[in-house]
Amino acid sequence: MDATLREVLTRIGGVDRCVSEFIRVSDSLLPDRVFLRLVPELLQRGCTATGVPVRPQLLGSDPVCLAENAARLAALSPAGIDLNFGCPAKVVNRHGGGAALLAEPELLHRIVSAVRRAVPADLPVSAKMRLGLEDDHLAVDCARALVDGGAAELVVHARTKAQGYRPPAYWDRIRPLREAVRVPIVANGEIWTVADAVRCRAESGCEDLMLGRGAVADPGLPLALALHDADQPGASALDWAALQPLLRLFWQLVGERMEHRHRAGRLKQWLYLLRRRHPEAQDAYDRIRTVTDLTEIGRLMFESPAAPLAC
């Protein structure tokens, strides 16, 4: 998720760490302003306002260029550096980035090794991968290549590139990777509820989980899972009324940080995802779906009798 959502959602609780959206590295050394724009938390010791560390994520395919950019990023004192080998987007894969690299375990090793050598020894380097391209026959080889190169942790999205984001996620396919390497593995993919998280842990053998769209659709999910782990289970950690102040804060931050033309779409995008967990989000989305005037959107969202605010 981007910095605005990180700022809002980490206020709820239950999140131990965030990873930034990927920072694309091609054939140049990026200036500091690029890292700071995408990861403004670097200006506050690499953490959100509530103290949750944020690990910037780099995406690219050239070991030398990635290493040089990782070294520059390391000078900004991040909480760690993550490497993206999981993005299935065609525009990324076409240029040899993201999940496309899972066909070349040796290249994965060279990339991680170069980045590991380029940054301070005490700075964690982690990597995110999928199970493979069309199938998972190279999954263990890829995991070993990343770890042998110096990755201290792997996040594994339990689908191949070809499977994209289509349900289901194959959590059980993570278990062989966990048995093949000696670093922590974090399971990821299709975790929308506490029940999903419990099943994912059981099938993957992983204790740690990475939440993506599930935490955006249900901002209370990380806290609900934390309460479950503390033997304080509940149906929901955050209802629609409790979400209202956070929606207000989100709208305020969007207004401060984003270009005028993108603000309305950003709120609509979040509401669209929130519909999965909160039926009230459908009503809010319908009210503003065709509205472009920002003042009117604010009125309809936060002043309409149909959208009561929590005190």
Rank of each mutant, 00 (worst) to 15 (best):
R24P: 02
A242Q: 11
G14E: 03
S113A: 14
L29P: 04
A118T: 01
V254D: 00
A306S: 10
E190M: 14
N69M: 05
V19P: 10
E203H: 10
D141E: 14
A306C: 02
A281H: 10
D196K: 07
R213K: 15
L146Y: 03
V183T: 10
G51K: 00
R94A: 14
M258R: 01
A281I: 09
L246I: 01
L42G: 05
L243T: 04
C47T: 15
V34T: 06
L59G: 02
P78C: 07
L221R: 13
R182E: 01
A242N: 12
E190I: 05
G149W: 09
L66N: 08
L76H: 04
L267R: 12
G189H: 08
A99F: 06
C200K: 06
R24C: 00
E153S: 12
A226I: 02
C18F: 03
L36G: 01
L101R: 02
N84S: 09
C47I: 08
M129C: 11
Y285K: 10
Q252A: 14
L101P: 06
Y272K: 15
V115A: 04
G86K: 00
V216T: 06
R257D: 04
E41H: 03
V8W: 01
P308S: 08
H95Y: 13
Y285F: 15
L274W: 01
L107T: 09
G234N: 02
G164A: 09
E21F: 12
D122I: 02
A75E: 12
A145P: 10
G13L: 13
V147W: 13
G220N: 06
A264N: 11
R144N: 07
D293C: 12
P233V: 10
A158G: 10
V156N: 06
S304H: 12
V19S: 08
L246H: 14
V194F: 03
D62K: 13
E207W: 01
V91I: 15
L300I: 13
L30K: 00
M1A: 15
F302Q: 11
D141P: 09
S26T: 11
R117Y: 00
R299D: 03
G80C: 08
L300N: 04
G86Q: 11
R277M: 03
T50Y: 05
P279L: 06
W192S: 11
M258E: 11
M129V: 08
P120M: 07
R110N: 02
G96M: 14
V186H: 02
H157D: 13
A169R: 01
R178L: 12
M301R: 02
V186S: 01
A307H: 13
D286Q: 08
D229Q: 13
L123M: 14
G80N: 03
A49P: 00
A74F: 09
G80P: 06
A152I: 00
C65T: 12
A3Q: 14
A264Q: 00
G51D: 08
P63K: 06
R110L: 11
D286I: 03
R178F: 05
D293P: 12
L133S: 12
I174W: 00
M258T: 07
G234E: 14
H95C: 10
M1L: 08
S126D: 10
D293K: 14
V34I: 05
E179F: 06
Q244F: 05
G189A: 09
A217K: 11
V92F: 13
A121E: 09
A118L: 05
E280T: 10
R45K: 15
